[in-house]
Design a protein around this nucleic acid. Structure first.
Lengths: 222, 222
DNA sequence: CCGGCACCATGCGAATACTGATAGCCGAGG
DNA sequence: CCTCGGCTATCAGTATTCGCATGGTGCCGG
């Protein structure tokens, strides 16, 4: 398993690299954004550890560009604590997981294992619902095999619906899982995004997949 | 299931109320201690969510008085984080559980479910009564396998009837569990909704499932 | 057997709540 | 400076909820 570490503090990078090596992973380290981008594009890494603060090009940006270029390996962002907005931006830009610094190496290891684990039965890398497919590592959606262009939020929302296909999910649940908002009753973002999704699905000839459950929320048909 | 929320911050109270409503609970909200005490004493709530900080009379005190007065429904205290002593006082005063704010709504929900479930894990996800099926997670009703279009209230009412199939349920019971009203206000909503249900069942060829028990209420045949 | 009464069914309609849809604001990225 | 994603604000259409009024039905005492 090959892992790329992008972290500007060399001591930390080296610390992680050694630890991963001891666990049997092949790990490289780079210390700035452009290098991270170049190496990740040119080599078949299985996982990318990406610090948010990187000279030259920050982690979120590296992530965005890689995903834009079709990079499909899982990405884990590293971010300073009390920077929740980073977390949100990171996930929005296509990261699969995030970890706040400082962290226990054990925890990093556990998450790395989780991301690299050849999906233990029941947890597929590709979610399906009828004619719809969501490739999670690559953050790509397909309808009848044809790619569906979705923004990061649209993807997250659809992912949540697909994970709960056949079940009615409430707006509150959606808000918590997709938006990270806890206390806000005055927004209609969810309705708006449902509308976006319906429109795109409709254009792909799959209208009617998302049903409204009046007074509750929405339900994706299987 | 009827829940009383006592929380002085109106936005939070409303958020909780809405979320619980989406889950099919009938919830009322009050914003101060005395109101909480009065409503809880006068109405048959199944659960009480009680913030510690309440104007007029704090949550711990409300809890103590209710318990002193024989109030038997479970009480869950809400408290600001880093106020551990509140937790202790809360539990001492007769609360069944506590939750620190801020919290994820889902956690609240999980605990609410736990407190309201007298019989652990004994609940089926799909309720049945003769040719009728209620798929709770999907929030869908079927008759002979064919979908039955029901509004939220209709669904709740039917759910209550199915849970009590074979038994006669009084209007008062229905009012208390399905609506959040006391059956004193001279309303006939229940009759009206029974009528709606009968009509829809009739159209699906299952007339006569809901029998009138004169002078008492209604009964759903098995 | 019959009248009266309490109880119940049902149609109608007003008020309300919920949803869908669109337009526009804002900030970040290029 | 333009574009795009994310979001807010708003409005109209419609389903839902519920009160009211009318008429029906079963039950009881006489």
């Amino acid at each position: 398993m090959r892992i790329l570490i992008a972290e500007d503090e060399k001591k930390i990078a080296e610390f992680i690299r050694r630890g991963l090596k001891e666990e049997g992973y092949a790990a490289d380290a780079v210390h700035n954004g452009p290098d991270a981008l170049r190496l990740a594009e040119e080599n078949p890494y299985d996982l990318l550890l990406l610090d948010v603060m990187l000279p030259g090009l920050d982690g979120v940006e590296v992530c965005r560009r890689l995903r834009g270029g079709g990079f499909s390996a899982p990405i884990m962002m590293l971010t300073a604590r009390d920077r929740v907005e980073d977390k949100v931006k990171g996930l929005d830009s296509g990261a699969n997981d995030y970890l706040t610094k400082p962290f226990a190496f054990e925890e990093l290891l556990a998450r790395v294992r989780a991301l690299l684990r050849p999906r233990p039965a029941g947890e597929a890398a590709v979610l399906k619902a009828g004619r719809l497919e969501l490739d999670l590592p690559a953050h790509k959606a397909r309808l009848d095999g044809k790619p569906l262009e979705l923004s990061a939020k649209e993807f997250s929302l659809l992912e949540y619906l697909v994970r709960n296909k056949g079940r009615a999910v409430t707006r509150t649940m959606i808000a918590e899982h997709v938006w990270d908002i806890n206390f806000d009753s005055g927004t209609n973002v969810i309705d708006v995004y449902i509308n976006y999704l319906r429109r795109k699905l409709e254009k792909g000839g799959a209208g009617g997949m998302i049903a409204t459950v009046r007074g509750k929320g929405y339900r994706l048909s299987e």
